[in-house]
Write a protein that binds this DNA or RNA. Structure first.
Lengths: 199, 199
DNA sequence: ACATAACCGGAACGGCGTTCCGCTTCGGCT
DNA sequence: AGCCGAAGCGGAACGCCGTTCCGGTTATGT
């Protein structure tokens, strides 16, 4: 009779080789999603062979293709999330809401710029509302409430986030050639118009 | 030796049965795209059998699945396009640009409401920049230039259009329960904030 | 060293978009 | 009315891809 310690809600830890494979798969997926314009072109067999494992391993660790992409992006977005929740002002708490909005939008532009392909993959595979987008929308919603009470906070949060949708962002950056600074400036101007329009 | 009149750029007209089949396919596609939340669940065989034709016919007339969806949506959007180009003010020409912006955004909300599933299908299959979206962006761009010269007109046009992205619109309407009037009001308020913010 | 459970690879499955080709139908001409 | 070439047609077949499954393998605690 094996001695078990079934601590409620504590899953048994991964075996070491399993953890190593999970990391290999995550790296391979990140690499391949970045290399392709369209995440549909990245197939699971290619990720598996890049990682040096079988396809079964991908599914055992990540469930499905969408979750894999979300998981990879989550890793890259964690830094930003922590900065927002507990980092130095104005991105973190402590600054006036107006300044936090602008700092957050700028940080989001930088993040989108760096991780464009991954963000694109996640949005194309699973739509909005997935991965870090949910947290960002919530954050903006709270700030919007303070900064523009004459708007529906939820709607406004989405409206301010929408220009960062990867397909729009891509179009502005690549086809139209706007710089990240120009995009930041447009976003700031839009935000200021909003909270300068109390009626 | 057959007598030919090769008028440059004039394709020979469709045979009558071909035209009838094209209409059947378009109707069947419209019906099935409307019934499903996810256009990926509508497969070409189902459209063909609903239309009473073989799959080959779908491809001969429409090229591929994305083009089929675009073609169907284009038909429904033509009315709006004509109203904008040559209908009565303020939607059509003749009214001050500010009024035209608001009339256009309201009309677009109504259109999105009516054709949500088709719009969703087109965007999911082919992204932005397809079908009527291109025309709408151009129209808004021209108006934005006049109404808010302190913004990048192209960027602003996309930013104002973005909240009508079907996945955002859906979320606001279905999950959050906003009415179309409330959405129109938010959009109007955003537009007014923009052109009330000349600096 | 052994027992057991977790883990692994990759063949197999099912579904989908798309292509292909032998047959059918249309429609202008005599 | 009958003929004939071209346009059109249906649906089997193809290739790709996400996902599942299972017989063999490896790590880990005793």
């Amino acid at each position: 009779m094996p001695l078990e310690l079934p601590i409620a809600g504590t899953a048994p830890p991964e075996r070491h080789d399993a953890a190593r494979n999970r990391a290999r798969v995550a790296d391979a997926a990140a690499k391949l999603f970045r290399e392709c314009d369209d995440p549909a072109e990245v197939d699971m067999r290619a990720i598996a062979s890049e990682a040096g494992v079988g396809v079964g391993t991908l599914y055992r660790r990540f469930g499905d293709k969408t979750s894999l992409a979300v998981s990879v992006l989550d890793t890259r977005a964690r830094e930003l999330q922590e900065a927002v929740l507990s980092g130095p002002a104005p991105l973190g708490p402590g600054a006036p809401a107006e300044e936090r909005v602008e700092a957050f939008l700028h940080a989001l532009v930088d993040h989108t710029e760096e991780e464009l392909e991954l963000v694109y993959a996640v949005v194309l595979l699973g739509g909005f509302g997935l991965g870090p987008y949910a947290a960002w929308r919530l954050h903006l919603r709270v700030l919007a409430e303070q900064v523009a009470p004459h708007f529906d906070a939820d709607w406004l949060a989405e409206a301010l986030l929408a220009p960062l949708h990867p397909s729009l962002y891509r179009h502005q950056r690549r086809e139209r050639g706007l710089t990240t600074d120009e995009i930041k400036q447009q976003l700031t101007q839009l935000a200021r118009a909003v909270y300068g329009s109390r009626r």
